[in-house]
């Protein structure tokens, strides 16, 4: 190989120097090709990410007055169901009194509601297992052993704070960004 290369370049340079230069050229060419392919591929890959109209942060205002004590409603934000539930005193107490050691993802109830509005819990209504919508907004729905929500797909159960209490879901229900505009109105997003 070295002899061939030396013969090919007329034998003026040392065989070693000629090989090094050729390797370098190969490396540069290959890197250029890889970068080029990547530069062409990225726009195609990125075109599959959420587009600007989807990303445009929309917000939803929700009036809380029609929500009866002990039940919840579902509003749509970014195509996702959002649970807004009016908790009873008993439900709040159950959520607050849980030992952290009993939770799959420990988090106190106070971190999951807005201060002074403990009767309202606002959650993204998507099971953290595989994305089903849990049941439990209506008092007549199955709510599971912990009185919160029950996912019909694979049997995950959530408590009245939306924390997962029984698998296979690994995480608590997410809380969307929201704020109280008044005592009876929230803005999600």
């Amino acid at each position: 190989m070295a002899e061939l290369a030396a013969a090919g370049t007329g034998g003026h340079h040392g065989a070693h120097g000629g090989d090094g230069r050729r390797d370098f050229l190969r490396l540069i060419t290959a890197s250029g090709a890889v970068i080029g392919v990547g530069a062409i591929a990225w726009p195609l890959i990125d075109s599959m990410n959420p587009s600007k109209d989807v990303l445009a942060l929309s917000s939803v205002e929700t009036d809380l007055t029609p929500i009866e004590l002990g039940s919840g409603i579902t509003v749509v934000w970014r195509g996702k169901p959002i649970f807004v539930r009016h908790r009873t005193e008993k439900e709040i107490k159950e959520a607050e009194d849980v030992q952290m050691s009993q939770l799959i993802e420990p988090q106190p109830d106070s971190e999951r509601v807005k201060a002074g509005h403990a009767q309202w819990i606002v959650l993204i209504g998507i099971c953290t297992h595989l994305g089903c919508v849990p049941l439990g907004n209506k008092p007549t729905d199955p709510r599971g052993e912990w009185g919160g929500w029950f996912c019909p797909c694979h049997g995950s159960q959530y408590d009245t704070s939306g924390r997962v209490r029984h698998g296979p879901a690994p995480l608590n229900l997410y809380i969307p960004p929201y704020a109280f505009e008044s005592n009876t109105k929230i803005k999600i997003g």
Partner: peptide, 13 residues
């Protein structure tokens, strides 16, 4: 998952 969906849930994209 959001890349697969092209959004925040299974939707038109």
């Amino acid at each position: 998952v959001q890349w697969l969906w092209g959004g925040f849930s299974v939707s038109n994209p």
